[in-house]
Structures are given as structure tokens and as C-alpha cells.
Design a protein around this nucleic acid. Structure first.
Lengths: 258, 258
DNA sequence: CGTTCTGTTGACCACGTTCAATCAGTGTGG
DNA sequence: CCACACTGATTGAACGTGGTCAACAGAACG
């Protein structure tokens, strides 16, 4: 419940931004499925590419947004807060995720978004969003598809938070992030995955206090289910973990990648 | 935790289905914004219109869906369950809501949907969804917009469930439903709104037991904040309720209707 | 009327919170 | 290089919100 962000202006505009046609992230981002021939002029809707430090506020809860973003690289959190200072993290955003879309783009943001690690972002002016979607039904469909996936993730969190005890919730979050990161970076299970979260952030995502996350994490470790070392997370027993968390990979999977 | 649904086949296909061009529900449904001229052939994507009784299962969790639906009239719940029998209601669906869209339409449904009251539905074949969206970018945009709104609602529930005590959660749910129903049916606050929910359903939506809903509801009544009578809900003090629940109407409002 | 479903009330309990002290790791400056 | 500060993780004790279980009361419905 301390301050989670620092207003700093160390945002660096990339001088040689990634070209969409050559972008490795594109296959999981908004322009997935856009025909090669159209990429050059679709790219015109992107205003710029930025690098931000960790703990940089992209959207402030309740303010309006000038740009929407594709998260090119890094971790960010989408969260809401209560007046007593408590925070609920809605979702962890990873490479490829689209940030800031809401039903009424001109309205105040219903949530805040903050980077957890240094991030690279592609910025799209809010004012041109509907023009962009109307120009290309594929992009509009893709946006609907992406949001449907984010919804599925949000719903699993709601189920966990509303109806599962601490251990199950934590196991579920680990499996979810593990799967999403594996989809991004591939690799072997024995490598574990990058895991920059503090226990307070974990707790804010699954509706627990940092203290109780600490205790619950120890249980998972003692059960031989997970291991954490050097900012990496290792799932030691996928099967038992999935059973414990009632985790169904297909529900939150990116369609076409599993 | 009893059985919530009854498999019955008393589903009646409307012989003279509402024509989209004349449909009063359209202004808040998927075809909102579709030019008059296109409505007749867009209507061809609708397979049929049905009437179902209460407690009829539209989607079963984990099965695939043949049709997606516009809920024309009535109440339905979108929910997920845990193996121990506990249920979490994700959202209450009301007139105009679109049911069943997910990132991968061919995949198993990540949630179940069941009617609470008798309902009227417009059915769209799943197999023609992407064709329909591609044919009309407006509809694809509208779908993205609707889902963004559903996401906003889901997120407020996640915040409530994760970070607010019982009284605030209950107040929030009441305000949300009150506002949505007012948008649908208009009328004066002194009339209250239709409210067919049992306390068990309320609890399943905000992560409480029916027992604790009962106790918490009594508190709200004793505080002079709400009144319930004859399956209707009355908000007696909007201002104090909004303050208690930290309810911001604009976050979940249908854009263009507030 | 009986039956069934929904809501109410009470007693007890447990999961997770709160608060506080301590510890470990990591920079930072003298 | 070490002292110091700062952040995040751990541990313990006391507490409280909400769950569980069970009995009962009304309402709805055949």
C-alpha cells in the first residue's frame, strides 16, 4: 500500500522504431492476420515507439488517454484501486498485449496501467482508433478476439478470488503466467520462466495480503510443486499443480497457439 | 449448491420473429449502428428466434456451442464452477447482451450460461460468425465495444470480490443492476426495478454465501439505503449508496446512453 | 393443506488480516 | 571496505470477517 509508481519523464522515443512488417511481436499482437501488403499503411496509425523505465504510469485511473499501446516488450499491470488504498491487479500485460481499449474511448479510464519492468511500447492515437478499425475489419475482429481472451483471463481470476482458497489461487496464477510466458519465449520447463513479481504484487492479483502470499508460497514449495530462484519461477509438477488449481490451459490460451 | 438448472426441451421457436429493422432491442445490441439499408441482409445471419423457460441451460461449461445469442428479453447468468460445487457468477446478462463470444469460437466454452427467467433469444450460427464480422466492420467494432463493456463490468466485480468487504460489494451490485435496468426500461427511481434474484444468486455473484448475503442485506435495509418488496429493488439513497460502494456509473455505462 | 424453496437466526469455527518485529539482500555513501 | 539505509520476505500473536452447519420460519405452489 505504499506508492507504487514514480512520475518520471525518462521516456525515450525510439529513433528507429520496429517496422510492423518485420516485427516479431506482430504474430501475437493487434496486427496479427493483417495481410503483408497492408502493413505499411496500417503502420501509419502508429504514432511512435517508446522505451519506458519500470514503474512508469501509462494510464492513470480516472483520466483520459491520448494513446493506446501495444506492449512490445516488458511487464505491465492493469489495476484498480479502492479509496482505502487497496489495489486489485486485473491482469498482467505481456509482450503483444494491447492496452487501453474500452467501450468509450473518450471516457475516463476505468483502470490504471503501470509498467513493472522497463518496457517498449507502440503508441496509437486514440483519436484515430475508430478510423483504423473501420478501415480494416481484420483488425477490428482481432481486437474483439484479443479482448475476449483478456476477458477469459479476468473471469478465471474472478472465479479464483470469489470461490477458491489461497493455495489454489496462487497455484492458478503461477500456471497462467507460466503458460503465457512459455508461449512468448518458448524454452523448456526445466528453465523456468522469468518472474519479476514481488509478493505484494502477487497478492494484489489474487486478493491476498503479501503476508499471506508468503505463507502460502512456502506451502507450495514444501509440497514440491514450485521453486523460485533468481527471479525465475519453476513449476516442478505440472500435473499436480493443474489438479490443485483446476487449471484448464485451453480457456486462456491464445487461439491458434495451442 | 443444489442443482441450478433443469434440462427441459420446452424451447419454443418464434413463428414470427422480430424483424431487426423494427427491433426495439437493436439500439443496445450487436446490430446497433448498422445502417438501415443493410439490416435486411444482416438479419440473414440470425438463424432463429426462441423463447425459453427459466433455468434453461444455454451453454454448458466445457462444451462447444453451435449458436451464439442475442438476449432479446429476460435475465441470464454467465458463471463458472469449481469442482467442489461452488459457483461464481461472472455477470448478469440482460436485454441486448450478446452471449457466447470467445477468442476461439471452436473451443470449449470457458463458462456456462443459464436463464434465470423466461427469455427470448436470437440465435446466430457459430459457423458464420467470422463471415458476419468480416462482412461488416461496424458489427466487428460493435462486438469489440460490447465486450469491452462486459470486461469493465467483470473488472469492477473482481475489484469488489478481491478488495472490498461484504457490505460494499452488495451495495455495488445493487447499484450496477439498478443502473443497467434503468437504462433498459427507464422509469422513475421511486418505482424501483425488477429484481428476480435469490440471495444465493446474489452471493454467487459477489463471492459470499447466501447466509452472509442475508445478514448483509439486513444491514443495508436498516441503514435506510435499500428496500426490497415484491421482487423489486428500491435504492432509497443513491448518494450514500454510491459513496459506500465507490460506484462510478460512467465506468460500466453503455457509451452513448449516459 | 402438505411440500418445496427461500430466507432468517444462532453458535462455532477457520481462513486470512493486521500489526509488529526481525531477517536477508542490495545498493549507497563515507 | 564497511556502515547504513532501504526494500522485500519471513515469522509470530491476536483478531475479525465471513463460512459452516443446523434448526426454523415464511412464502409459493401444487
Amino acid at each position: 500500500m505504499a506508492r507504487h509508481t514514480e512520475r518520471n519523464n525518462i521516456v525515450h522515443r525510439c529513433q528507429q522504431p520496429t517496422r510492423c512488417a518485420e516485427c516479431e511481436v506482430r504474430r501475437r499482437a493487434l496486427f496479427r492476420g493483417v495481410p503483408e501488403a497492408q502493413l505499411n499503411w496500417m503502420q501509419e496509425y502508429r504514432h511512435a515507439q517508446f522505451d519506458t523505465p519500470a514503474r512508469h504510469e501509462l494510464f492513470r485511473e480516472g483520466e483520459t488517454a491520448e494513446y493506446l499501446y501495444t506492449l512490445h516488450a516488458g511487464w505491465a499491470i492493469i489495476y484498480k484501486t479502492v479509496s482505502n488504498g487497496k489495489r486489485q491487479i486485473m491482469r498482467f500485460a505481456l509482450s503483444g498485449d494491447f492496452l487501453g481499449f474500452q467501450a468509450d474511448l473518450a471516457a475516463r479510464m476505468g483502470y490504471g496501467v503501470t509498467t513493472l519492468t522497463p518496457c517498449r511500447l507502440c503508441a496509437f492515437p486514440r483519436s484515430r482508433m475508430s478510423e483504423m478499425l473501420e478501415a480494416n475489419a481484420r483488425v477490428a475482429m482481432r481486437l474483439a478476439e484479443m479482448n475476449a481472451r483478456y476477458m477469459a483471463i479476468c473471469q478465471t481470476h474472478l472465479l479464483c478470488t470469489g470461490r477458491k482458497p489461497a493455495k489454489e489461487r496462487l497455484a492458478f496464477l503461477f500456471l497462467e503466467l507460466h503458460q503465457r510466458l512459455r508461449q512468448l519465449h518458448g524454452g523448456d520447463d526445466s528453465d523456468g520462466v522469468e518472474f519479476p513479481l514481488a509478493q505484494e504484487e502477487i497478492g494484489d492479483a489474487i486478493g491476498l495480503t503479501n503476508v499471506h502470499v508468503s505463507r502460502t508460497l512456502q506451502e507450495l514449495k514444501q509440497d514440491g510443486l514450485v521453486r523460485m530462484a533468481g527471479k525465475r519461477l519453476y513449476i516442478l509438477d505440472q500435473q499436480r499443480m493443474r489438479q490443485l488449481a483446476e487449471f484448464d490451459p485451453s480457456v486462456i490460451a491464445e487461439s491458434g497457439y495451442i
